[in-house]
Computed example of a mutant assay.
Amino acid sequence: MQRIDVHHHMIPSGYRARLAAAGIAEAGGRDLPAWSAEESLAVMDRAGIATAILSVSTPGTTFLEDPANAVELARMLNDESAAIVAANPDRFGFFATLPTPDVAASAVEARRALDDLHADGVVLLANARGTYLGEPGQDQLFSVLDERAATVFIHPADLPAPAVDGIPPFAADFLLDTTRAAYLLVRNEIRRRYPHIRFILSHAGGFVPYSSHRMAVTIAGEARRSPLDVLDDFSGFYFDTALSASAAALPSLLAFADPGHVLFGSDWPFAPETAVQYFAAGLDTYTAGDAELARLIERDNALALFPRLGTAAPAPAPSFPDRLRGAVTRSVLRGMTRLMADA
């Protein structure tokens, strides 16, 4: 019960109703799952998660073309998030939703959410209606975030192009979307001009660890920079393990990321509980025999970003049925993970 989950979504009823009114019943090619704070807590208990940082996934406010409506929805979501955290301050935190791509309005709401609501950071979509994070013209928002040494959780959205038939966006396009945003943040030197912002890339950074050297050579050639300096910018992102704690992905991620920059993530409820347990078992298998590495990924690295959680009371022990259910599920999935790793 010590994990800190930095990739844990919320789908409040009011938000779901707004999506339904716009004819939206899915995100990234997946139907919107059921969600409540109570069910979040139950899943957290079974997965050994002490605290989850809540965030709204794609489409956020981007489905609203009227800027005033987007601002109103962002404020509603942030007020509701703050109330959930106030009711369970040791179990939840939240990343504030911003009305992107409106930079000025997003800067105003970021200031309100961070200063008045005490959000733990903000969530920004890799692209908001085709405008990518890191494109020119976003300095007003980055200045507000840099002044507050804010943590920015970058979550992918649907690519600004038709999906390929038979390939749901969450399966592959999301990884490219995150990679595109990371590329622009490095290429346009946002990482260097705003050094106090801590950026977390979802899903182990998409393709960033795998393609980092290729991208570094490209950027270095364009900007006449050292490829090693560009690689430093890429490896300095933070990365979560959501849907990525596998024997294939973890070694590459840990070899690439700066020490202390890998964080636990579940992606619940868009990742069903079986997937949460599967990748948690993958992390357990990979870190078996290295308790320090496990502790760093599951908790201590996150505490460096969210020190307030270090003073939280220990999470209550789950009920015996929940412990038994979780133990059986993890045992089975851990065995499957070992078999796949040995294959």
Rank of each mutant, 00 (worst) to 15 (best):
L117N: 00
T285F: 12
V144R: 01
A105L: 07
P162W: 07
S106D: 06
A52S: 13
W35R: 01
E273A: 14
F270Y: 12
L145H: 03
A288R: 14
T151M: 00
H7C: 07
G282R: 00
D177T: 08
P321N: 05
G282W: 00
V208R: 00
P99W: 03
A119P: 03
P59M: 04
I197R: 01
L263H: 09
V122H: 03
R225N: 08
S226L: 09
L250M: 05
I49K: 01
T337R: 12
V230P: 00
P168F: 05
L228V: 15
A163K: 11
P169E: 04
I53R: 00
A47V: 02
V85N: 00
G121C: 04
A86I: 08
A216S: 08
S143M: 14
I154E: 00
F237T: 00
T287E: 10
M1V: 13
Y210T: 12
S57Y: 08
A20P: 03
R192K: 14
L159S: 08
R75F: 10
R224Q: 15
R180K: 13
F153D: 01
L32E: 07
M1I: 15
D66V: 12
A21L: 12
A288F: 10
G221C: 08
R214G: 08
F63N: 02
R180S: 06
L77C: 09
H196A: 12
Y210N: 13
D120V: 03
L231W: 06
V56R: 03
A37I: 09
G29C: 07
L293T: 09
A52F: 06
Q140M: 14
